[in-house]
Design a protein around this nucleic acid. Sequence first.
DNA 1: GAGTTTGAAACT
DNA 2: CAGTTTCAAACTC
Length: 516
Amino acid sequence: SEHLFPQIAKKTPVSSAAPIKFIITKTVNSKGFLFLQPFPCHVLSGRVLTQNSPVMPQRTITLSEPHSMSIQSIPGKKIAISPLKSPSKNIKPVQSVAVGGVSGSQFKTIIPLATQPNVQQIQVPGSRFHYVRLVTATTASSTGQPSGPSTSSIQTAKPMVVSTGAVRMSVPIVPAQTIKQVAPKPLTSAAQVVTTTQTQQRLIMPATPLPQIQPNFTNLPPGTVLAPAPGAGNVGYAVVPAQYVTQLQQSPFVTLASSSSFPAPTGIQTQARLPLNGLTTAETTSRPRKPCNCTKSQCLKLYCDCFANGEFCNNCNCNNCFNNLEHETERQKAIKTCLDRNPEAFKPKIGKGKEGESDRRHSKGCNCKRSGCLKNYCECYEAKIMCSSICKCIGCKNFEESPERKTLMHLADAAEVRVQQQTAAKTKLSSQISDLLMRTAPVISSGGGRLPYTFVTKEVLEATCECLLEQAKKAEHTHQPQAEAERMILEEFGHCLMRIISSAGKAKADCASINC
DNA sequence: GAGTTTGAAACT
DNA sequence: CAGTTTCAAACTC
C-alpha cells in the first residue's frame, strides 16, 4: 500500500530479519466497518490474494529495521491477511467490534500453528499499525528472502510472545483439544488452511494486541495470536473470523480441512464482514446484514450492499455473483474501478459524531425528492440521523422540529412498545403452560406441589365422555330444548371435573402418607 | 408475492 | 457537471 505507506514503497536493503509477508493497514468502509479489501495494495484483510491479479501484483514486504521495508514480488503467492491494530488507544473500538463480529452466529476458528517460530510481530515506530511476520521454517533464517513453494507453509507458523509496551501480545496456550470446544470449524492442520498447487500460501491473521484479551476463545478478536506460554506446549493458535474460513472454503485456490467433529455448516453462511469501526458490539452482533438480491450487477457494483460494505456475498439471494473468492480477479478489478470513480467509495457515509449521535451526519447528504426523507429510501433517515445542510433533498421532513418526523417517531415507539408487550405476554404464557405441564406431568418422585399421578388418563377421558353422552341422551329423551341440553351437559362436565380433582387430591394425600 | 416507487450509483 | 439510465431496496397492494 504505497500510498498509505510511502516510506515502505521503496525497496530497501534487507536485513537479517526474516521476511515480512504483509502489512496490515486499515480504513473503514461505507457502513463504518473496518474495510481493507478495496485498497489497491497487496494488503487485504483476512482474504486470500492471488499474485496474478491484474489489478495489483501481490508483494511481500520485508521489514528489517523498524523503518525500513522493502516490497518484493513473489509470483504465485497467495496470502490471506487480516488487520492488525496497534496497541494504542485505537484498540478499544477494535476489540469491541471485532469480538462480536457479525452476529451471534459468528464464531472464530482457531487455527493451530505449528512448531517453528515463524510468526513475529514487528512494531514500526511512528506507525499506527502493527506488522506481523509469517515465515516458514526455511525462511525464518536470516536470508531475508521468501521461501520457495511449499504446501505446508503455515504449518510451521508459531506466534512469538511479544510485549509491546504495556500490551502483551499473547495469551497462555491451550491444548489442542480445547479447539473443539471453541471452534465450530476447527482445522486439523494449518497446512490444510492454505494449500495450493505449486504455489505457496500463507494465512496471516490479525494479531490484534489487546490488553483485554482473556483466555476465553469466544472472546478473542479475530486474528489473536495465542502463543505458547513459557515452558508450555509448542503449538500456538491464531483466531480468525469464521467467515474467512467460509470464504476460504469456497475458494478454488484454497483447500480447507473440515473437521469430523464439527461438520462445516456449509448451508449457514455468515457475512464475511471485517472488523468494524464505529459501531458497537451490540449493533453489529444483533443486526447481521441482510442478504442481497442482486441480479444484474454481479454484486460488483456499489448497488450491492455486500460489496459496498466490503463484504463477500454469503448466504445471499443474488444471481451470478462475483463477490466471492472464486472471482477474486474480477472483484479486485471492480474495487479498483469504484475507487477510481470515487476514492471515498468505501469510506463510511455516515460520519461519526464527536459526541453522541447528534453529530453524525451523512458525508454527502441525500438527494431525496419524493420521500420527504421520512422513508428508508433516504440514506439519512435510514441511518437514523437528521438531514443536514449538505443535503439537497426536496420537501425534507427529516429535521429536528419536524412534526411529521415526531409523529413517525412516536408511532415507531408505540409499535416497539406493542411488540415488547406482546413478547412479554407470549413469554409469560409460555412459562405458564410450561409450568402447567410440569404440574400435571407424571412425576415418579413427588415433590413440592406436584401430583404423583396423571389423572386425566385415557380411561378418565373415556369415562368423562360417556357421562357427557349419557347426559345428552337424557336430554334428548326428555325432549329438552337445545339450550337446556347444553346446560345439562356442561353441568355434568363440571361434576366430572370436580370428581377428577377430588380424586387427585386424595391420591396425593394417600401418597404423602405412605411417603411414596 | 407481484408490482410500484424511490434515490443512489452508474453511465453518457 | 448535468441529465439519463440502471439498479436493488423499500414500499404498497
